[in-house]
Amino acid sequence: MQPSLSVARRTAVRASAWQAVAVLVLAVVFGLAAGPAHAAGVLVGGFAMVLGSALAAWFMVGGGVNPAGVVLGRWFLGMVAKWLLVLVALWLGLAVWRVPALPLLAGLVVALLAHVIASTRRPRSTR
Rank of each mutant, 00 (worst) to 15 (best):
A15N: 06
V96T: 11
A27W: 07
V23G: 01
G35W: 11
N66W: 13
G73K: 15
A111G: 04
L105Y: 05
V99A: 01
M1Q: 14
L77N: 14
V99I: 06
M1G: 15
A8I: 12
W91N: 06
L113T: 03
A17S: 13
V116Q: 02
V70K: 15
A33M: 10
A111F: 00
L105W: 02
A81F: 03
S53T: 04
V42L: 02
V23I: 07
G45Y: 00
P67H: 15
L105M: 07
L5S: 09
A17N: 11
W18H: 11
R124D: 12
G35L: 08
R122V: 11
A12S: 07
A114E: 00
P103Y: 03
V28N: 02
A56M: 07
A17L: 13
M1R: 15
W75D: 08
A95I: 05
W58E: 08
V29N: 03
A20V: 08
V29S: 07
G78R: 05
S53N: 12
F30I: 07
P3T: 12
G69H: 14
G52E: 00
A40C: 08
H115L: 08
S4N: 13
G46T: 02
G46V: 00
P103M: 03
L112F: 04
G46R: 04
L51S: 09
M49T: 01
V7T: 14
L55F: 05
V29D: 04
W97D: 00
R122K: 10
F76K: 11
P103W: 03
A17I: 13
K82Q: 10
P3M: 05
W97P: 01
A34I: 06
L43W: 12
W75F: 14
A101Q: 11
